[in-house]
Computed example of a mutant assay.
Amino acid sequence: MMHADLIDQEDFRERLIALGMSIPAGATPEQACELAVSGLSPERAVALRHLVEELLGGSATLLPNVREAISRHLLPALVPKPA
């Protein structure tokens, strides 16, 4: 039997916490993303961008609510602003 790697809201939360972000237990993916982008420092933005690239480009399957939260909140926040 094959087992796929799944990223659910708890896995996603744990990955954000590993980056040093404070995400409370039970936070939805939307809430976790909103908290992750609030007050982003340049260093955290780089780390968060790497995490998003890893999640979206990796072999793990993101649950739809996690993928949607990333698309709606993290991607727009991580797009470089024109100078």
Rank of each mutant, 00 (worst) to 15 (best):
M1R: 06
M2H: 13
M2A: 14
M2E: 15
H3C: 01
H3R: 12
A4I: 06
A4P: 00
L6C: 03
L6T: 11
I7A: 08
D8F: 02
D8Q: 04
D11I: 07
F12K: 01
F12S: 02
F12P: 00
E14H: 08
E14G: 02
R15S: 04
L16Y: 07
A18L: 12
A18G: 06
L19I: 10
L19C: 10
L19E: 07
L19T: 11
G20Q: 08
G20M: 09
M21E: 09
M21V: 05
S22N: 12
I23R: 04
I23Y: 05
I23N: 04
I23G: 00
I23P: 01
P24I: 13
P24T: 12
A25M: 09
A25W: 10
G26W: 12
A27M: 05
T28V: 03
P29Y: 03
E30S: 12
E30C: 03
A32T: 06
L35M: 13
L35E: 06
A36C: 08
A36S: 10
S38W: 07
G39Q: 11
G39L: 09
L40Q: 09
S41T: 15
P42S: 14
P42E: 13
P42Q: 13
R44Q: 15
A45C: 05
V46P: 00
V46I: 14
R49E: 12
H50V: 07
H50R: 14
H50Y: 08
V52F: 04
V52M: 06
E53P: 00
E54P: 00
E54Q: 15
E54I: 01
L55D: 02
L55T: 05
L56V: 07
L56N: 10
G58Y: 01
G58T: 03
G58S: 07
S59L: 12
A60D: 11
T61K: 05
T61F: 09
L63G: 02
P64R: 07
P64E: 10
P64G: 08
V66G: 00
R67K: 12
A69I: 03
A69R: 01
I70P: 00
I70N: 04
R72P: 00
R72H: 06
R72A: 14
H73Y: 15
L74F: 06
L74Q: 04
L74Y: 04
A77L: 10
V79S: 10
P80L: 10
P82W: 11
